[in-house]
Design a protein around this nucleic acid. Sequence first.
DNA 1: CTCAGTGCAAACTATTTGCAGATTT
DNA 2: AAATCTGCAAATAGTTTGCACTGAG
Lengths: 136, 136
Amino acid sequence: MDQKDLKKAGLKITQPRVKILELLENSSKRHFTAESIYQLLLKDESGIGLATVYRVLTQFETAGLVIRHHFESGQSVFELNQGGHHDHIVDIKTGKIVEFHDEIIEQRQREIAREHGYKLVDHSLILYGEVIDTDD
Amino acid sequence: MDQKDLKKAGLKITQPRVKILELLENSSKRHFTAESIYQLLLKDESGIGLATVYRVLTQFETAGLVIRHHFESGQSVFELNQGGHHDHIVDIKTGKIVEFHDEIIEQRQREIAREHGYKLVDHSLILYGEVIDTDD
DNA sequence: CTCAGTGCAAACTATTTGCAGATTT
DNA sequence: AAATCTGCAAATAGTTTGCACTGAG
């Protein structure tokens, strides 16, 4: 079901695009920087350049296959778009990212936008947290 | 009440710091990029360099005088910290920024963090909206 | 007078782009 | 073969830093 998505987006099925898509789908992690993807590809000796990683990710973003986040880090973070919208909790100590979805907040955001005369088009919500007690 | 804050932060009272603080306090706008502050200073022929603007803003941020936001724009946006926490609505057409505060959302964020085993330390919420009809 | 602060240019980080050669269809 | 795509190096945007000089206390 990879290549379908690429074709649908009007993108040729090339080695870099397939490799990157596979990586996004089959990795245990869900969040990547362009650099981290580049590093993973290096191990595979695919010979794919960093510029290509950026180009492919941007194309994927445009095609709606991938979502780009702007966390405080300075680097963009990319994540496969699997439909269900969610927001993120970032562990300020470890950088670990947890996903969540909350209808109360979603609903309230729409109301607030409305109250100010706006239609909510998009939003970005990131919670920064610290683990509460973990003596494992 | 300018210089007090500077002293409290252990910063010498220099022309660039005073000028920038004044600008943040007395402008009709509340949100600035480093570049926009630099441009305003240019008009005053203060001879203050862009590097200094960045240095001063970073010092102000450390001192808690200023808050730095990371909107999608790629540029950091700075705002005078006047105590009351708030979040932002960004008009996707004009870039205009509206502030709001909502206790329901604030409360819910804490609960969600808790539910996931985190203590909420900070958060970033930005709504992107489109004006609903304005035939003025 | 001393040390923090500043301007300028150079350095850096993340990302984008031009171009000639390689790939997909 | 035609058009798209890629790798590399160079370009760009935003921000930071080294250093010799300036200015606040």
